[in-house]
Amino acid sequence: MKPRHKRIAIIAGGVVALSVAVGLVLNAFQSNLVFFFTPSQVVAKEAPIDRTFRIGGMVEVGSIKRHADGLTVAFRVTDTAKTLDVVYTGVLPDLFREGKGVVAQGRLGADGLFKASEVLAKHDENYMPPEAAHAIEQARKAGATVKQP
């Protein structure tokens, strides 16, 4: 092969590899990005029904209820303006408490109940997950009242 052809072949190989990578990335982005919504947005029906997304806020005080099986937990997540009913089956993280920040990932049912597949709470007592802080801040910017029930 002539050096010029070789060069072209190498460049072509590189371009092919690169476009495969870009294709993979785009494809993965399309199906795997997890968007974030605040409880207010969910209540205002801005969130999709059949797609996985994240919500964030505070676990409303007095809202945690355990089902009889001992593993299914229902609670409400609030951004101080609106609240959202969430249900989760499984073992909760150590720092999941009432009145604390929480981020949950899951799907919204047509009945308005958020079925969480994952509940995240960070390993730091005084920490609020940024997404949860963001939700509360958004609610405040919207001029909501701040009183907790």
């Binding site: 993965a28 199906s31 795997n32 990005l33 990932q105 997404e131």
Partner: peptide, 11 residues
């Protein structure tokens, strides 16, 4: 605000 989770990286 979004998060890119393990499914993206895996795929």
């Amino acid at each position: 605000k979004i998060s890119v989770g393990p499914p993206y990286f895996d795929s």
